[in-house]
């Protein structure tokens, strides 16, 4: 089935070229280049307001870029949006779990929308895999933060999308729930799914990602494996180590700034 022009080589799962995005006067992305290899976990690291969510929204066809181009799973996000949607799933920053439905019903809902046969069986299998079988019949409004997030990710895996986007999957979770989500993401790697995740936590990127891109002020400041960032590029290493506190400082400054401005 594979035609030569769609699979000429081991094509990158995500390619973004000079992506820009402005909301009115406000320029959020100033030319982002990104390449994610198939089957890898790529972390997009950046502080609040760095443009991570905007980039994710462009790559998942929710909004259109102002300039530049991007392709996901070989399809252009602007021209072939519906083909892109067949190949991806998004676990957004805000929970996409329906609180009034049970865990089982939430999963069945997505399976039906993906026009898969045996939605009930698919739901049962995923509940088992994410250790949610005991809570299958309970409304998800009663789930803990970690359980809801795991269900959210499980919903993203229905139909085996080639590329999974996780936007700040652990923000707002307590430490043990965070570990549960990390386990879920690690499982994805074992299945060969490509994952692009955004995070503002350095340890999360370090723990999960094969490669890391640092997004700051609307551009990618550095990209590589943790090892490359640390060793292979000595000048960058210095820059990276210096950026560690810088990002945290920005994050803290932003949040502290908000608190004190009340």
């Amino acid at each position: 089935m594979s035609s030569p022009e769609t699979t000429p080589r081991k094509q990158a799962a995500i390619i973004a070229t000079s992506i820009t995005k402005s909301f009115g006067e406000h320029l959020v992305l100033r030319g982002v280049d990104l390449e994610v290899a198939p089957g890898s976990i790529h972390a997009l690291l950046g502080a609040n307001g760095a443009g991570k969510t905007t980039l994710i929204k462009i790559l998942t066809t929710l909004i259109k870029p102002t300039g530049g181009s991007a392709s996901v799973a070989g399809y252009d996000v602007a021209a072939q949006a519906q083909r892109v949607r067949e190949s991806i799933s998004l676990t957004g920053q805000f929970s996409a779990v329906d609180g009034i439905l049970t865990g089982q019903e939430n999963l069945e809902l997505i399976a039906r929308l993906r026009h898969l046969s045996h939605p009930q069986q698919i739901a049962r299998d995923l509940l088992e895999r994410f250790s949610l079988a005991d809570a299958a019949g309970r409304r998800t409004a009663q789930y803990s933060g970690g359980m809801a997030r795991r269900l959210d990710i499980a919903m993203s895996l229905i139909g085996n999308p080639k590329v999974v986007f996780l936007d700040e999957p652990t923000t707002g979770l307590d430490p043990s729930a965070r570990l549960e989500v990390w386990d879920a993401v690690t499982q994805l790697r074992e299945r060969g799914t490509t994952v692009l995740l955004t995070t503002q936590y350095l340890d999360e990127a370090e723990k999960l990602a094969d490669r890391i891109s640092i997004l700051h002020e609307g551009t990618i400041q550095a990209e590589g494996t943790l090892g490359e960032l640390e060793h292979l590029l000595p000048p960058k290493k210095v820059e990276y180590v210096e950026k560690k506190p810088t990002l945290e400082d920005i994050f803290l400054a932003l949040t502290e700034g908000k608190k004190s401005s009340k």
């Binding site: 929710l62 949607r85 998004l90 676990t91 957004g92």
Partner: peptide, 10 residues
């Protein structure tokens, strides 16, 4: 996030 999830589905 429910609307966004549906919008990113085919």
């Amino acid at each position: 996030g429910i609307f966004e999830r549906f919008q990113t589905m085919p």
